[in-house]
C-alpha cells in the first residue's frame, strides 16, 4: 500500500513539472508585453499611442530596464529554471505589480478560497447523498422524476447568470435587499465585534456565493448517487439480505449504502478542478478577495509570477486530490488493493 502511494506520488512529479512547463510556455509566449503595461505608466497608457518621440524613447528605456529587472530579457528556458528555483523555495517570485513576494499575496487569500471550497463540497455531499438515496429507493415515482428534472435544470443553469440575478434581485439594488451584493464583511465590520456577530456577518456574505458554487455539483452528484445505489440494489447480496427478512431500512442503510458510496468518493477528484475554475467567476462577481479574484486581476495586469502561482496551486491541489481519492477508495472498499496493480 505504502509502496503504491509512493509510486503514484513519484509519477506525479513529472506530470506536475509538465504542467508548470506548459503553463509557463503558454503564458510567456502569448502576445502582449507586461513590460509595456507596467513601465509604460500602468494600465491604459501602456500602448504608448500619442506619445511624442521624446517620451516614447523614455518609455522604451524604462521598458528595457524593467525587463532586465525581472529577468524577462533572458532566454525562455533560463527564465523557466529561475522560476523552478523560486518554486522549490516556495516563493513564486515577486509580483510585477507591487514587488510583493507572490507567496505573501497567496497566503493572504488562500484561507478564503479554501473556506469557500470546503463549505461548498460539504454542501454538495450533504444535499446530494440524501437526495440520491431518496430517488434510488423510490425510482420512477413522481418525486424521483421531479428531482431528475430539477437536477437537470440546476446542472444547466450558468452560475454567473444565477449570481447576477441574485445580485440584481436580492442584493439591494432596485429590488430586494436580503443579501449584501458582495465582499466578505459589512461596511461597519470591526474586529471588536463578538465572535457570534462576526460569524453571522460572514455567513450572510458567504451564503449566496457558496450556494451558487454548489448547486451544479449537488445536482450532478445526486444523480450519480441515485445511479450508484440503484445498481447496488440489483445485486444478489441485496436479494439475500431481503430474503433473510431484514427490514428495508437495514438493507438500504447497512448493506447497500456503503457500497454505493464508493464512486462518490472517487468523483471528489473530478469536481475539484471545476470548483477551482468556478471560484474565479464567483469571487470576481461577489468581490471576494480569494485566489480566484487574485488570479483574474493578475491576468488582466499580465502579472506573470502571480498567474504562474495560481496555475501551480490549482494543478497541485487537483493532483493531490486525485491521489487522495484513490487512497480513500482503498479505505472505503477493502476489496480494492492497488499494491499488486501497476501504477497507471
Amino acid at each position: 500500500m505504502a509502496r503504491y502511494i509512493l509510486i503514484r506520488f513519484l509519477w506525479m512529479i513529472p506530470t506536475f513539472l509538465g504542467i508548470t512547463l506548459i503553463s509557463f510556455l503558454i503564458i510567456h509566449m502569448a502576445p502582449g508585453d507586461p513590460a509595456e503595461l507596467m513601465a509604460g505608466g500602468g494600465l491604459g497608457a501602456g500602448s504608448g499611442v500619442g506619445l511624442s518621440t521624446e517620451n516614447r524613447a523614455a518609455v522604451d528605456q524604462a521598458v528595457v530596464q524593467w525587463r532586465e529587472q525581472f529577468g524577462l530579457d533572458r532566454p525562455l528556458h533560463e527564465q523557466y529554471f529561475v522560476w523552478l528555483g523560486h518554486l522549490f523555495t516556495l516563493e513564486f517570485g515577486e509580483s510585477f505589480k507591487d514587488h510583493q513576494p507572490v507567496w505573501n499575496k497567496m497566503a493572504e487569500r488562500l484561507p478564503i478560497t479554501i473556506l469557500l471550497n470546503v463549505l461548498s463540497i460539504l454542501l454538495i455531499y450533504l444535499v446530494a447523498i440524501p437526495l440520491g438515496i431518496y430517488s434510488a429507493t423510490h425510482p420512477y415515482t413522481a418525486m424521483d422524476r421531479l428531482t431528475t428534472v430539477g437536477a437537470f435544470i440546476l446542472f444547466s443553469l450558468p452560475t454567473f447568470w444565477v449570481a447576477i440575478l441574485a445580485i440584481v434581485f436580492l442584493g439591494g439594488g432596485d429590488f430586494l435587499a436580503v443579501f449584501p451584493p458582495g465582499g466578505l464583511h459589512a461596511t461597519a465590520y470591526s474586529e471588536s465585534w463578538p465572535w457570534l456577530r462576526r460569524a453571522a456577518d460572514l455567513g450572510l456574505h458567504l451564503f449566496l456565493p457558496v450556494l451558487i458554487m454548489s448547486y451544479g455539483g449537488f445536482a450532478e452528484l445526486s444523480r450519480f448517487m441515485r445511479g450508484s445505489l440503484l445498481e447496488v440494489l440489483t445485486q444478489n447480496y441485496i436479494l439475500t439480505a431481503r430474503a433473510k427478512g431484514l427490514t428495508e431500512r437495514v438493507v438500504i442503510y447497512k448493506h447497500a449504502l456503503r457500497n454505493s458510496l464508493v464512486p462518490m468518493v472517487t468523483i471528489l477528484a473530478g469536481i475539484l478542478p471545476a470548483l477551482i475554475g468556478g471560484s474565479v467567476i464567483i469571487e470576481t462577481i461577489f468581490s471576494i478577495p480569494g485566489i480566484g479574484q487574485l488570479g483574474f486581476q493578475a491576468v488582466l495586469a499580465r502579472d506573470y509570477p502571480v498567474i504562474m502561482a495560481v496555475f501551480t496551486m490549482g494543478a497541485f491541489v487537483t493532483l493531490v486530490s486525485i491521489l487522495l481519492s484513490d487512497f480513500l477508495l482503498t479505505l472505503v472498499d477493502p476489496r480494492i488493493s492497488f499494491g499488486r496493480r501497476s501504477a497507471s
Binding site: 478542478p273 475554475g277 474565479v280 496555475f311
Partner: peptide, 24 residues
Amino acid sequence: NRLFEMMMAIPTFFLIITVSAFVK
C-alpha cells in the same frame, strides 16, 4: 495518459481566461 493527466490537472477555465485575455 500522462498528457491526459496534465490536461485534467491544469485549471482549464483559468487557462482559457489567460490565453484569451493575452491575445492582442
